[in-house]
Write a protein that binds this DNA or RNA. Structure first.
Lengths: 332, 332
DNA sequence: ATTAGCACTGGAATAATTAGAGTGCTAATC
DNA sequence: GATTAGCACTCTAATTATTCCAGTGCTAAT
């Protein structure tokens, strides 16, 4: 890949990202001070190499996934964010009233808004959390709320009707759990409830089965709701002009509705990573740009989902920006 | 509207609901033992009365909104639910481990599943709740979680970083709030925080402004998140054959994404009520069948959203069934 | 009041035509 | 050897024409 050839590929990718129209040889003549025939020769080679494709024999060229990949790996320059974008993000990052989690959610909302892509935030799955505290709140004679809080501050609550036991027995059990299980990884709690707590309360509490079930259920919700999924601009991808046929739209909308599929968009690698088309497990027609974050112990993944002809440079810059600035916010 | 004419309207509505195809005069000959010309005469009158419409001069007839309205008000017979449907719902309603709220959510999931419509549950807005308890959980030296619980068992939690104050001051304030504000309607709490609590802690606590802000923020979330919206089968409506063009799909998907719009689907009237097309505020192309529920103090709205040619009788029967059975579950 | 008969309408499906953007290849040129 | 002008060729998208048909409205007869 000599210099000019790379430049032509870059031009094709960026043109296509901008106009969503196949790029013909004439369109590049001026840029490279040569005739369309010369460009055609180069394009033919780029096609042989697999970087660009034709929709049909007489159409212009469109980047292939391999082409996008080459572009993001070798050709893309980091984009300077506009003052406006920076201002919007910085207003949120500087707002010290917002907790980290809330601030991150607000930031990705901004990203969705300014890019028309879809943002997903996946809170770290609770498996790395440990139990911090269980509490019982007594609503009335027959109803209680059980609250479970982890060391990272994730809270789940569940309401129960008291049947076949009484509030004293529940509170007593709650105290035992708080004495014995604090610090236990959250997904081991149910096991320890059964083997450590159940035998103890069996000796002290009459309706211990009923009470045991209440706490078991309360912890059960944790595995169900985690990692928490937060999405912003879910319908944004439909604004992209490539979604102009009924079947594609229905397919992608259904995928975004499928929580178990969205939950798979987790990231463990460091830095900002790009998954183009078949490289991601979500949908062959989209690109996902993700970053794992760990800010003062709050961990999770931010992902931006858009068409393959995404504004890679801008999205990468946006993600880098918020990750970097959250870190300095919390160390400064 | 004589007998036969009503019967013809009924037939047109039900045929159209089933096949989504304009109904022609020939299709009804057999049913009424007469010629297509006779049916045509009647149809012509029904059209003059505004109950049915033509898409174009030589197409069959389609019910108008007025026609659907006449059908639901006068012609529809309550539908008998199938044993299968009853079984699915009853399994959930009979499961005493589930709290009322969870059970309702599971039931509407079932409804979405068996009907291919979209279900929405709007929990009663917190405005009718009163404060039950505020708690503080201390995660580490610099982080706390504030928990607010209402008398109906709605819980909100919010994490804070402690800056410029200390945990003792926060806990002390928390105790004061619990002493003074329990029973206060939740949307008046912020006001009372300012006028009743702030003066008191101003005398006892150094950084009272900071502490005040923490609690103020914690309560703020309540108005933001309420009424809570739960949706099931959001993409189901796209399975309906009338959604076969890009613009309609994009429009309806965007509407379902707009929480503030979905929140408007609240119901205050009693019983099961039907809002056809322009009668609802959500979208002219859909019908919404709603019911308010109040089961043991848990209040809210269940709404089923579908095309105007919805299976009215079935959905009404389903809603009636779950409302009735939840009531007897909780009185029995 | 009902119906047979018939002209008429508008849409959906299919085919035919045209225009245009873009390619690939060849032979001439720098 | 790289570049380019020239030209035949290909495929799409848009336009138009043709046919088919379900269904209507109207009239006159039953």
């Amino acid at each position: 890949m000599d210099n000019r050839r790379e430049a032509i590929l870059k031009e094709i990718v960026e043109n296509y990202i901008k106009d969503v129209k196949p790029v013909g040889s004439k369109a590049l003549c001026d840029k490279f001070n040569c005739s369309s025939a010369t460009i055609r020769n180069e394009m033919s080679i780029l096609e042989d190499l697999g970087y660009i494709e034709k929709n049909h024999i007489s159409s212009g060229r469109v980047p292939s996934e391999k082409g996008y990949r080459y572009y993001t790996d070798n050709l893309m320059k980091p984009k300077e964010l506009t003052g406006e974008d920076v201002l919007k993000l910085q207003t949120i990052i500087n707002n010290r009233e917002l907790g980290i989690n809330d601030a991150i959610l607000r930031c990705v909302e901004i990203i969705s808004e300014i890019t028309d892509y879809t943002s997903v935030v996946l809170g770290k799955s609770a498996s790395s959390n440990t139990l911090k505290q269980v509490s019982i709140i007594n609503l009335d004679e027959t109803h209680i709320v059980a609250l479970v809080c982890t060391n990272k501050g994730i809270v789940e609550n569940k309401q129960f009707e008291i049947k076949g036991t009484n509030i004293d027995e529940i509170v007593k059990t709650c105290e035992i759990i708080n004495k014995m299980l604090i610090g236990t990884p959250i997904d081991l709690v149910r096991e320890r409830l059964e083997f450590d707590i159940k035998p103890i309360i069996a000796t002290k509490i009459k309706q211990y089965e009923t009470v045991y079930n209440i706490f078991y259920d309360a912890f059960n919700d944790f595995s169900k709701n985690n990692p928490n999924v937060y999405m912003s601009g879910r319908a944004n991808i439909l604004k992209q002009p490539e979604y102009n046929n009924v079947d594609d739209i229905k397919r992608i909308v259904a995928k975004f509705e499928d929580d178990s599929l969205v939950r798979k968009i987790e990231e463990d690698k460091d830095g900002v990573n790009i998954y183009i088309g078949e490289e991601n497990e979500f949908d062959d027609d989209v690109t996902i740009i993700k970053s794992h974050y760990n800010i003062n112990g709050e961990e999770g993944t931010i992902a931006i989902v858009g068409p393959k002809r995404m504004e890679y440079d801008r999205v990468v810059a946006l993600l880098n920006y918020i990750i970097k600035n959250f870190e300095s916010r919390n160390n400064g």
